[in-house]
Simulated scan of single mutants.
Amino acid sequence: MPPETTAPPPGRRRFRKRFAAGTAVLCTAAFMWVNNTDVLAYHSAGERGVLAHRGLGQTFGHEGVGNDTCTAERIHEPEHDFLENTVRGMRAAFDAGADQVEFDVHMTADDRFAVFHDWELDCRTDLSGTTRDFTLAELKRADIGYGYTADGGGTYPFRGAGVGLMPSLDEVLAEFPEGDLLLHIKSDDPAEGGLLADRLSALPAERLAGLTVYGGDAPIAALRERLPELRVMSKDMMMDCLLAYEAVGWTGHVPSSCSGMQLHIPEGYGPWLWGWPARFTQRMAAADTRVVVVAGSGGFSEGFDDIGSLERVPDGFTGLVWTNRADETAAAIRDRSG
């Protein structure tokens, strides 16, 4: 007869179950730490880049800025004579060392694209209304430096100097045939995405590879449907990617919703992402996705605009750094590459 076996007492069984569960939790926690800590990550040097927001232009204080604030009326004392969203300002940004230059596009009355930031023309120019109220030819006669003042209206240092400086999208593409460009659709009109698709579809594949478009969910969806090979980003796309990554990123897996895009990550949100910054940027790069770190909450054009602010860019970050002052920061951004 087989020997009799005696079951362990209930207290010991409970201990074994708790020990097994605790060991599983500890092993999982250890795996998550090892798989996501930057302490053990490979920090590749020389890969941090510069994204020049609106090229090179005048900067302004962000305190109290809202959606209706006319930022041209609160610029800092000018240190240069470049204006945002101009060919000259974009050229200056590239010359200063920018890897990618961002600019804004709006539809015109004759279904062209003007390069200009504001929906309303009244703040910066000598015109009143929206870009859609005017033809491109009419907009090109506007003075885009008309409304800038650093002393509450005492002086207007760029008034008269901005006549004819509002470029078209076609002019920018012609001026920078090989430049890495980031186009911002300022509306949420799907028709604008369709019109932009009409324009960009005429470009060769190698030129499309150097363009990225971001903006409202509806126009970006329309654009992506027509040009699936184009790198695009919208708020919905970014949220789909990041929520999925938060769920599974601890394993090192990058969800398909994160592939082939450009992510703009506010500096305060980055530390909540698995593997931030080095492993995160490396994982996204492997999925053909660029990562951009933006200052503050990411709203109202905040950038890393002086040497001191670059201390907040984390070691090991190897994506693009958003700046409004490429002339002041580009060299330092590269010197501090992770």
Rank of each mutant, 00 (worst) to 15 (best):
P167D: 00
E178T: 14
A197K: 02
E192A: 05
Y156A: 06
D151I: 11
F176I: 12
D189N: 15
E138R: 15
E138P: 10
L173M: 15
A174F: 04
G193E: 00
D133T: 11
Y148P: 08
T130N: 10
F158S: 03
K140W: 04
G145T: 06
E192R: 01
R199I: 11
A161G: 08
H184A: 05
G152F: 10
Y156W: 15
F176P: 09
S168A: 11
A191N: 09
G152R: 08
D189F: 06
P167W: 00
I185F: 04
A191Q: 12
R159M: 08
H184R: 10
S187I: 14
A142M: 12
E192P: 05
A197V: 07
L136T: 11
D198E: 13
D151N: 14
L165P: 04
A174G: 07
T135K: 14
G129C: 09
V172T: 06
A150W: 04
A191E: 07
G152M: 07
T149L: 15
G162T: 04
L139R: 08
L165G: 07
L181Q: 02
R199M: 04
A150G: 11
R141Y: 08
D180I: 06
R199N: 02
E171H: 11
P190T: 08
T135I: 12
G147Q: 03
S128P: 05
L169R: 00
F134K: 15
L195T: 05
T130I: 06
G129A: 07
A161L: 14
G154Y: 01
E192T: 13
V172E: 00
D188E: 12
L183F: 12
Y148K: 14
L139H: 02
M166R: 10
L136F: 10
G164I: 10
A161I: 07
L173K: 03
G129Q: 08
Y146I: 04
L173N: 02
E171F: 07
R159L: 07
L200V: 12
I185R: 00
T155H: 15
L165C: 12
T149P: 12
K186E: 10
F158I: 13
D188K: 02
L196F: 05
A191C: 09
L139V: 12
E138V: 14
G154H: 11
L182D: 07
Y146A: 03
D151Q: 14
D180K: 09
G193S: 06
L182P: 08
D180Q: 15
K140I: 07
A150H: 10
T131C: 12
T135E: 05
G147I: 09
S168R: 02
R132Q: 12
T131N: 14
F158E: 02
